[in-house]
Each structure stands twice: as C-alpha cells, then as structure tokens.
Design a protein around this nucleic acid. Sequence first.
DNA 1: CGAGATTCATGTGAAGTATACCTTTAGGCTTAA
DNA 2: AAGCCTAAAGGTATACTTCACATGAATCTCGTA
Length: 403
Amino acid sequence: MSQKGLSGFFEEYLKKDAIFKDKKALQANYTPETIPHREKQIKEMAQILAPVLKTEKPSNLFLYGKTGTGKTLSTKYVSSQIEEMASKNEIPLKIIYVNCKLKKVADTEYRLMAHLAREFGKEIPVTGLPTDEIYNLFFESLDISNKILILILDEIDELVKKTGDRLLYNLTRINSELKISQLSLVGISNNLTFSESLDPRVKSSLSEEELVFPPYNAIQLQDILNQRAKKAFKQGRVAEGVISKCAAYAAREHGDARRALDLLRVAGEITERNNLQKVELDHIDEAEKRIERDRVLEIALSQPKQFQATLYSIIEVSSQKKTLIFAGEVYDTYKKICIQAGLRPLTQRRLSDIISELDMLGVINAKIISKGRYGRTREIKLAIPQHTQKEVKKIIEGGLDLS
DNA sequence: CGAGATTCATGTGAAGTATACCTTTAGGCTTAA
DNA sequence: AAGCCTAAAGGTATACTTCACATGAATCTCGTA
C-alpha cells in the first residue's frame, strides 16, 4: 500500500461505522458488574473473606474448577469489592493476585517468593540469594506493613506439580511467625483432584474452606454471551443464532466461558476487518481456526530456542512420516537441526522433559507406549492443524536462523 | 501350547556440573586530619 | 586512621548432564500335554 493510500485508508477506517460499541466487554480481563450463574460461589466467597473487614484473618480458601468456569473472574470481582470497602473504612488490607503459571515470574518457589517480596517494594535479584532469605525478606516486609494479606495463587496446581508442596507448607505456617500482620491464602486450581496429592497437613490447613465451580452448560453460556454482547456490539450487529452457536461450541469443551467469549470477539473482529455489517454464523468457524492458530503461534514464538528446535523437529518428522512418530526419531532429527542452527544439542534425557512440557502446553499429544520387544517410547502426535504447522515452521526458522 | 524369561528403546529419578548471579570479606589504595 | 573500591571467596538457583535403574508388552524359550 502506498503512503498516500494509507492516509486514505485511515480516514476510511474512521468513517466506517464500527460494529463494536465497547470491545473491552469481550476481552478476557474484563470484569462485568454482574457475573451470571456464579451468585452462589460469589456470596460464599464473600462470606468467607468478610472477616477481614473486622481486621480478622479469614479462613484459607480453595477453589476448584476447570478453565473458563469463572474462578479467576469471581475472585477478582470479590477481591476488588472487598478492597473498595476496606479502603473506605480504612482497613489495612492488601490483596495480591499471582498467576503461578507465568514463566519467569512465579513458576518456582524462589521466583514466586521473590515476586511477592517485590510487591512490598523489595529489590530482589533474579538468582543468587538463598530461598530462605527471600522468605525472611517477605515476612519482614509483610509484618512491618501491618496489614492483612490475602494471597491469591492462581493455577497453583501447576506450581506444586513442579516444585512440590513445601512452598504451601511454609506459607500456611507463617501466620504463627507473624507478629502483627496476617496472611490468608486463596488457592485456585484447574485440577479437581489436586488436593489429594498434598501433604495432609497442608491439605487440612489450606482447604479450611472449599468452593467448586462447575462447568457452565450451553444455556448459561448463552446468558453470559448475551450480557456481554449487549455491551460490546451495537444494536443488531449480531446475526440470529450466532450467540447460541458460540455457546454450543464452548459447551462442547467442558463449558469454557473464556473460549466462548474469545470466539465471539474474534468473530466480531473478522467481521469488522471485512467491512461487513453483521457477525454471521460462518465467522465463528473462522474465528475458531484463528484462535487456535494465534494460540499456537504465540506459544511457538515465546518458547526458548531448545523448545523451538524440538517442536520444529517434531513437525519435520511428522510431515515426512504420515504415521505416528516416536521420541527416538525426534531426537535424531533434533540433533541435525541443532547442528544446522549452530546449537549445542541437549541430551536425550533433557529432550524427554522438553517433550513432556510441550505436551503440557498442548501443542503436541504425547503418550507413553510399549512396543513390546521393540522397546518403550513416547508416541507423539502434533496437536496443530496442517496449515498452521507451516507457519510455525516458518517462525521457528526465522528465530533459529535456519536456512 | 502356554507360562515365564528375555529384550529393546526409552522413561525417569537422583545426584552431579556449569553458569550466572548474589553477599561477605579482606586487602589495597586514597583521603583527610 | 578512616573511608572507599576491588577482587576473591563462598553461597544459591536454574538448566542441563550423567548415571543407574525401571518399564511393559512383543518375542523367545522350554517344559508339558
């Protein structure tokens, strides 16, 4: 597009009457005033946490539910309300929300504690200090702050799976060491059987209270979508049946509301980009593809080099062999790729772990199988649609500087 | 023919190593009295 | 003598390697019917 044409394009863009009224209403971090079908959980959560308003320590709380069942949203809603009330009445309260899954932020014991201490304004180096020291720094500043702290740990199951439950044990115990301040834990887990794997002591003190978030059904999803769509779109810009189709798609995947909202938002964006007046049914299918594509590309792009090389090898091998592929083959190809890219190849042991992590990320499906006489291995299958594979490959080629 | 032993290719846990970063400490140099 | 800077020493977290052992069904072996 020429320079002149561009200014014309922008003018055109501004003149065009948008189909969105307030697109934020469909974004993941948006908190509506009311959260349909979670009234019960929200009320209970409020009851459990309310004692802070009398400067008493609330019970520790544990939330279960699959992704997109409103755990995070409800928690944020309740905590913002409490915060507001607390500041109005000058109650010394602090709420910290941490997502334990974020790489390089809170995915190890050290990093989580460092993150918390930083919340209290401490300068903590990335590495080098003993973890105990970080605990002390955190306790100290918490105690000095003279506040009740509600610590919300999202996706806590991921963290415990990786680093064990010592962290939780320490956190549940620190109240006895604090003189002035108090700490309540709110754990959020996607895994329903998570607490089974905990040390009994941790389990009993962490789950003083428990709340379960069941999946939404299609009708509830429709309610949610309708509520948000009314805010987000201008009148009459969504074709008949679009909402229910989004709901149906998401209900198919264990009632994931986030997914439903994403679908609707992306469908809207597609409509807008194509200069169309109405969001039609077809746009949802297109949106579904695009969401999946974006997710995969995002993951591929954000991984460390070794992970990229591994993923690349998997794509490479599986495009040559139409059948299922095995870890050994991937390793052989991976070694070649490394040489091409000027990377020092990692050991098979490490690659095995990397493959597991890629599995966790959902870009591949790996299953351990025994081929009897012919040994034992992982059977790997790509979870990326064909056309996206090529894009992923290209991205990695760029990043890895392969020819 | 079938039960049990064998086998293969790799999964997996534990312990060790390299690297990058941290604090503490001791020595050397500078400065000011 | 006091103060400041620097480098070495001693410590840690993390990512990775090394070593050794675990796995589990297809295949083999061998006793038995």
